[in-house]
Simulated scan of single mutants.
Amino acid sequence: MMTLVLSQNDIHTLTNDYRMTVEPSEDREWSLPVMDLLDPEKSRMYMERVAPIFRTSLSTASVSMFVKRYGFLTAAPVLYAMSLLNKGLDCSVANSHLESFHKGDTWLPKLRLSDAAVSQPEEGKREEWRDWIIERLFADNISKVLRSLMKLVPVSSAVLWENAAIYIFWLYEKRMGEGATAEQKARMEEDFRYLVQEAPARLFGEARHNPLTRFYTEKRRTKAHEDPFRIRKTCCYYYQTTPGEESFCGGCPKVKHEFV
């Protein structure tokens, strides 16, 4: 692999559109090195501080809502850089920091890397290079964080993996193709197909199955939605963070969908 640095244009795109930052946040209460999420006591203390953001205490719902944000902030810049820029970021836990930011009443944490050097594949070796990036992102980061948080509350790995999966699908299907060249779109489509259909379980820190594959289902059209969409396999517990409202996500399996 060849080692490079991010260009100013790359940094501008990643920091403005893909939840990355190059500066530590001044808000140290809700910012931390990702390694702290693997420590039982530190992760519990942090999640107890974060839970009120989701209008709840430390619970299955607050952990689920946190993982939605965490999965997106880690996957978005790494997968955009890999597929659109053909550049690799090291998102291993030891190299990653969660930096806390607010936009109005919305909490929008971002990813900061201690070492933001990037790699590029050598000629004819992109598949091996891609595996290295995916493994750093999933097996050495997201999977470890999910397993640690699962020890705090009773929540299944399926719920947490689907929380990450839905945003990965959205990135590739809706977001990253905007303004992409034909070459970039072809690379993006190939990477997405590999991620959801072919990548081996070990790259995700799993023993038997690629955890994204089971959630990559056909989109369905319903009477309530003009555009087809995927119905989730699991409920993310969002409704438990809306007391008195019981608002459900559009694709929630608890909702009775009328298909057309």
Rank of each mutant, 00 (worst) to 15 (best):
D227Q: 15
E183K: 14
E226D: 14
R220P: 00
T241P: 09
F192H: 05
T222L: 01
L203R: 05
R187F: 10
R193V: 11
R221H: 12
R230Q: 02
E189M: 13
G205E: 04
A207L: 12
C235R: 04
G179H: 08
R220I: 15
D227I: 10
T241G: 05
Y216F: 13
A182P: 00
E226I: 12
Q197I: 00
Y239W: 06
A186F: 05
R220E: 14
G177D: 07
A199M: 04
T217S: 10
F229W: 02
Q184R: 12
Y238H: 14
K219H: 03
T213Q: 07
T181P: 05
A199L: 00
Y238Q: 11
N210T: 06
C236Y: 06
R202D: 12
A201C: 04
R230I: 00
R208E: 15
M188H: 10
D191A: 07
Y216Q: 03
Y216S: 01
G179F: 08
T181N: 04
Q184W: 11
E206A: 05
Y194K: 07
R187S: 13
R202Y: 14
H225V: 10
M176E: 06
T222I: 02
T222D: 04
P200I: 05
Y238K: 11
E189I: 10
R208V: 12
Q184S: 09
D191E: 09
M176Q: 03
P211G: 06
L203C: 06
C236T: 09
E198P: 01
M188F: 06
M176K: 11
E183G: 02
E189G: 03
F192E: 03
E183H: 09
T181M: 08
A207Q: 14
K185C: 11
E206H: 11
R193S: 14
R214T: 07
N210L: 08
Q240P: 03
N210C: 04
T217M: 06
P228M: 09
T213I: 00
R232P: 00
R220Q: 14
Y216H: 11
A207N: 11
R220S: 08
Q184C: 11
T217P: 00
E206C: 12
R187Y: 04
Y237T: 02
E226T: 12
Y237P: 05
G179S: 10
R202K: 13
L195V: 05
T241M: 11
R202L: 07
D191I: 13
E218H: 12
A201K: 04
F215G: 00
K185M: 13
G177N: 10
D191H: 09
A186Y: 01
K223H: 08
R230Y: 06
M176S: 07
T241D: 08
E198D: 15
Q240G: 00
